[in-house]
């Protein structure tokens, strides 16, 4: 049984002429224990998809079942409770509270759960130990490196023992060492039976995933199962099949850039068709 089940989920922003279609009838089902990488160009709706799955945002249309329970129309408070108990968030910009120490930051989700001060600090401390940050407990976020802050953020996401970890470009602001550290941690979390969904631009990181979902213009254009330790085929293709520039291309300069969108015309055309269809219905 699917842990996360999205059916024809759409998300629209704005209104009238300024309407933007961030998610276009996305149907996706994720089972328990999967390690899903979501890839795609900027602005293709990856983050929106994660926000909807993480109950931070509500879909405009479609249904979302989490643990077989319909959750797309939950009240703010119920969504908060569900988020607190089942979902852990990791953000690209870490999002630790700057005025709290690392330990206090990690303990915060437990505070909202109503756990007592001593117990929550103890739990947070052991969680920091798990991510190798036990000697940085009383540091403030600004005193740490990006990788260390992200490790603390991972500890915060794990502290409530959620079944789903949602990470929106967790390595986006990190160097290769930091990225590796974070991905190894996520991989460990996955091995413990958690479901991990993460967004990345880096095809190399698909080595950690068991499944890669490709998005474009708010739609899922490809869904590929991969084996651990190998770069996903599609990602590899995209990575290695970028046409080498010829001397002509160099000379062409700006006109080459003008040509580029035409290559993706096929996808654009199909999305336009879909939009028209919705307009009629």
């Amino acid at each position: 049984m699917a842990l996360i089940k999205l059916e024809d989920v759409s998300k629209l922003y704005g209104f009238g002429d300024a309407t933007t279609l961030a998610l276009d009838e996305v149907s996706l089902s994720i089972d328990k224990g999967e390690f899903v990488a979501v890839m795609g160009p900027s602005g293709c709706g990856k983050s929106t998809l994660l926000n909807v799955m993480g109950l931070l945002d509500k879909p405009t249309h479609g249904t979302y079942k989490l643990n077989n329970r319909l959750v797309d129309r939950l009240s703010q408070n119920r969504a908060a409770k569900l988020r607190r108990d089942t979902i852990g968030f990791i953000f690209q910009s870490y999002n630790l509270l700057p005025r709290l120490t690392v330990l206090e930051n990690v303990a915060l989700p437990l505070a909202y759960k109503g756990v007592g001060v001593t117990k929550r600090l103890k739990t947070a401390s052991s969680m920091l130990e798990r991510v190798g940050m036990q000697n940085r407990e009383y540091f403030y976020p600004y005193q740490l490196s990006g990788g260390q802050i992200q490790c603390a953020a991972i500890a915060r996401a794990l502290v409530n023992e959620p079944s789903i970890i949602i990470a929106d470009e967790p390595t986006g602001n990190l160097d290769s060492m930091g990225s590796r550290l974070v991905m190894e941690l996520l991989s460990e979390i996955h091995k413990m039976g958690n479901t991990v969904i993460f967004v990345t631009h880096n095809p190399e990181l698909t080595r950690y995933a068991t499944r890669v979902v490709y998005m474009h213009d708010g739609m899922v254009i490809q869904d590929e199962k991969t084996s651990l330790g190998e770069v996903a085929k599609t990602a590899k293709k995209r990575l290695y099949t970028i046409p080498k520039k010829s001397v002509e291309d160099d000379l062409a300069g700006v006109s080459l850039l003008m040509k580029l969108p035409k290559k993706e015309e096929g996808i654009d055309a199909s999305s336009k068709k879909r939009r028209k269809r919705r307009g009629r219905s």
Partner: peptide, 16 residues
């Protein structure tokens, strides 16, 4: 506002 967003994302209810 961003801090409020973070707090809500990690499970704070409206009342909290």
């Amino acid at each position: 506002m961003h801090e409020i967003g973070i707090r809500k994302a990690i499970g704070a209810s409206n009342r909290q």
